[in-house]
Write a protein that binds this DNA or RNA. Structure first.
Length: 423
RNA sequence: GGAGAGUUGACCGAGCGGCCGAAGGUGACAGUCUUGAAAACUGUUGAGGCGUGACCCGCCUCCGCGGGUUCGAAUCCCGCACUCUCCGCCA
């Protein structure tokens, strides 16, 4: 949720934000109206309530007829107070609901526009010229099947489309990537966490995932719980309602979890292999920091992601996502995209967002500052996922169907230097 | 699944329907003492919001959450969530 005081004092900033995101700027005026209505109703209630309390104190002291007279007066007032309170509560709920529909204000420098209007920040490493190496390019699924690493058919049999089994070396490779990711995060100062993947509605809502993209999320109706699409949700909820001490720097966590996504809006997209699936694993970095440090923290996240990509010897580029493609919580988002040889395109493998105080405001996560308690900023970013296997298999494929193993992964694979096809 | 106990401020913990935003303690902060520190002593110290309100000031809300009774609820009643203990079931 954005700061209502900011909205009142500089509504134009918020209108501009809505326009940049491709959202409706008139919501701003509706929020302002609802906010004004709320404050008016609140005033009325509070005045009446103050009178009621003051009479109440006299009642306690009065005796006999005087007491009866006071009681008669305040009885009528009590009913009115109750009505006014209901009105004020309703007005507050309406204002908050409207305000919550506003996305975060993009950072200066974020490109305007939609999904295709990103700017490329940099490109690191060069895709191999596989044809020149005499390699008949295979996609990750063909390679994975050759290694007996991926089993889509049985995934579908057991769970349906977009489900899979990682088998044998595939399972080991995923563990290796995630372990290396966790190690990289650990070295960057993140504290490892194994997190719940089922969360309460208020936590899911607090992270901003129940807005426009709510139908992307699995929900267990009987238990009123949501399956998380990233451990960001649990890690953001971890300190909800708390007042933190950030005097020693940001609180940094690295969460390892299964992630669940309905992929409701992506029918027909990335249907082959494990690029886009309903369930995968991810190590996610998350930090709570001071708002003034958030941009620097965000840069640090990106740097850590790049270190991991470089260690895995993957060619990649970094894009600065356009306003319209930001999640509702994000003020800025950098994606790292690895090269995908089979499709000759870039594929998102990490995404890091600076959510400024947007999530913390909803989740009531604050820090005690000299001039009172202020919401903290939250930053999140990917350091490794199952999808990375796609990039690894394709970029490190060799003519005989085997796959080169980057040295950083070898300790997690019993020293294996090459993954050999199973015949 | 059954039975019982509980949920109060950063933490522990007391709380009679009005004098309770809440005793007491711990912690934190400031001061006295000390060459310095510790100890001791003194003081300060919950959150959110409204009022054109940064400071001062006034008011409202918050004692797990939601509702009810009452002129008035941390205190009484109902529902829900969570925690703990015991029993059962499963692994």
């Amino acid at each position: 949720m954005i700061d209502l005081k900011l909205l009142r004092s500089t509504p134009d900033v918020v209108r501009a934000s809505q326009v940049a995101r491709g959202d409706d700027p008139s919501v701003v005026d509706r929020v302002l109206a609802a906010d004004a209505a709320h404050r008016a109703a609140l005033q009325e209630f509070e005045t009446a309530r103050a009178e009621q309390k003051s009479i109440g104190k006299d009642v306690a002291r009065a005796q006999g007829e005087e007491k009866q007279a006071l009681l008669a007066r305040t009885k009528a007032l009590a009913a009115r107070v109750k009505e006014l309170q209901a009105g004020a509560d309703a007005a507050a709920a309406q204002a908050v609901e409207l305000a919550r529909s506003l996305g975060n204000i993009p950072e200066p420098g974020v490109p305007a526009g939609g999904e295709d209007d990103y700017t490329v920040v940099k490109t690191v490493g060069a895709p191999r010229d596989l044809a020149a190496e005499g390699i008949d390019v295979q996609d990750h699924l063909a390679i994975g099947e050759g290694l007996k690493a991926i089993d889509m058919e049985r995934g579908a049999k057991v769970s349906g489309a977009r489900f899979y089994f990682l088998t044998g070396i595939g399972a080991r490779l995923e563990l290796a990537v995630l372990n290396a990711a966790m190690q990289t995060a650990l070295e960057a100062g993140f504290s490892p966490m194994m997190t719940p993947t089922l969360v309460r509605p208020e936590v899911m809502a607090g992270t901003g995932f129940l807005g426009k993209h709510a139908d992307e999320i699995y929900r267990l109706e009987r238990d009123d719980l949501y399956l998380t699409g990233t451990s960001e949700v649990a890690l953001a909820g971890y300190h909800s309602g708390e007042i933190l001490d950030l005097a020693d720097g940001p609180l940094r966590y690295a969460g390892w979890s299964a992630c669940y996504r309905r992929e409701a809006g992506s029918a027909g997209r990335d249907t082959r292999g494990i690029i886009r699936v309903h369930q995968f694993h991810k190590v996610e970095m998350f930090s709570y920091c001071r708002p003034e440090d958030a941009a620097a923290e965000h840069a640090r996240f990106l740097e850590t992601e790049e270190r991991m990509l470089q260690a895995l010897e993957l060619p990649y580029r970094v894009i600065d996502t356009a306003a319209g493609d930001l999640g509702s919580s994000a003020a800025r988002k950098f994606d790292c995209e690895a090269w995908l040889p089979s499709q000759e395109r870039w594929m998102e493998v990490t995404s890091t967002s600076n959510c400024t105080t947007f999530q913390a405001r909803r989740l009531a996560i604050r820090e005690r500052r000299e001039d009172g308690n202020e919401p903290v900023a939250t930053v999140n970013g990917t350091i490794g996922t199952t999808r990375w296997l796609v990039a690894l298999l394709e970029n490190h494929q060799q003519a005989d169907g085997s796959v080169h193993v980057p040295p950083v992964l070898r300790p997690y694979l019993g020293g294996l230097e090459v993954l050999e096809p199973v015949r």
